[in-house]
Write a protein that binds this DNA or RNA. Structure first.
Lengths: 197, 197
DNA sequence: AGCGGATAGTTGACGATACAACTATCACCC
DNA sequence: GGGTGATAGTTGTATCGTCAACTATCCGCT
């Protein structure tokens, strides 16, 4: 069975796409590192936590939402814990598990970093595209994700919570909102994160 | 001046897109590492060289085509040289510069690796898309690339050779084709590379 | 000539990631 | 009620990439 090589359209799309995939992380990392002392991955961890109920997520769930492996997340969380950006606490329901919570320092760091980061994302990704292209891109990325992430663990806030529930699933505190900053703060933190709800 | 946050369409596109950007390299790397003992970046270096005239490119040109920094390329080439995949030789026209040439071993390694790699690219990137989406993707990636790489150094084979000409620009040997395998081999090597000419 | 700034590339140290073990707990079930 | 397999997470090592010097060469100018 011969290999199905890429035709001209396909090769053209692939070469450009892989160039973006290779170059974009470096751009995101260096802007955040320079302006906020964070890697893009660390930023994303903060953003995901900021949108979670009670600003808390289990390691496994956080790893899935941040598109990373568990060992990688574990190392990153250890370093972030030393900088007081997040805090680990044992999960009461499952003694193998840990919850990770955003600290006030982490929240402040995120709010600080968000405008510059969003500007970078706009400059390099969103603004060069027409509104129609932005919608196309969502569809295209979604199609790829179904192969790259068959469980759909990257964006679970939309569906049934199959696994990785944070501690105390039925938390008494009904306000999903973080204290203090109100909805403005939440949007700021989001920056590059899913629309939560 | 307030930050322009992302609206719903934009955030949706961004979150899915960044998930692909984060996950895809790992998938490409582990397939190639498992089946051919190469990283994706090393594969790409081999592929770019295989399409260059005389299978040779200067460091700077190769770095641009492979979307990498010069220090990174330098380290990678050193390792690949030890494995006899490529060879460095001083550039006669410019004594600061070096040419990198694909060896026969490197060519064979590339030909070996190509089918599996292309299959992976198809599975995760191309085949999930409709033909129309493939064309859309080329346009979208192109628009982003104009910001990420304003000089357009990623795909220069189409335009004027502003910099980084390989040694002996007017090489006597007129056949751009590698020896042996003919056009089939060339296509195989291409795999994930630009259509050269 | 020869000086100054830019370009080509290398090197070393450090930081971060992947991968493979390993521990501890859970869930099932016979 | 104890064994078995799966799950949650950590840790150590080896590798890879980035960043900041540093060397060598080239180009333009006076």
């Amino acid at each position: 069975m011969g290999t199905r090589w890429l035709d001209d359209d396909e090769r053209d799309a692939w070469v450009r796409f892989i160039a973006v995939v290779e170059r974009l992380p470096g751009v995101l990392d260096s802007q955040l590192r320079r302006d906020a002392g964070l890697t893009h991955y660390e930023y994303f961890v903060l953003a995901m936590l900021s949108e979670a109920p009670d600003r808390t997520l289990r390691m496994t769930a956080l790893a899935a939402r941040t598109n990373a492996t568990l060992p990688r997340l574990s190392h990153v969380v250890s370093r972030m814990e030393e900088r007081d950006l997040v805090r680990r606490s044992p999960c009461l329901q499952d003694r193998r598990a840990f919850n990770v919570t955003l600290t006030d320092t982490g929240w402040a760091t995120l709010v600080d970093a968000a405008p510059g980061h969003v500007a970078t994302v706009r400059e390099h990704v969103i603004d060069p595209l027409s509104p129609a292209q932005v919608r196309e891109l969502a569809g295209i990325a979604d199609a790829m994700l179904r192969r790259l992430d068959p469980q759909g663990s990257a964006t679970p806030p939309a569906r049934a919570p199959r696994t990785g529930e944070p501690d105390g699933a039925g938390e008494p505190d009904g306000t999903g909102e973080p204290d203090g900053a109100g909805s403005t703060g939440s949007t700021a933190a989001t920056g590059s994160a899913p629309g939560g709800r």
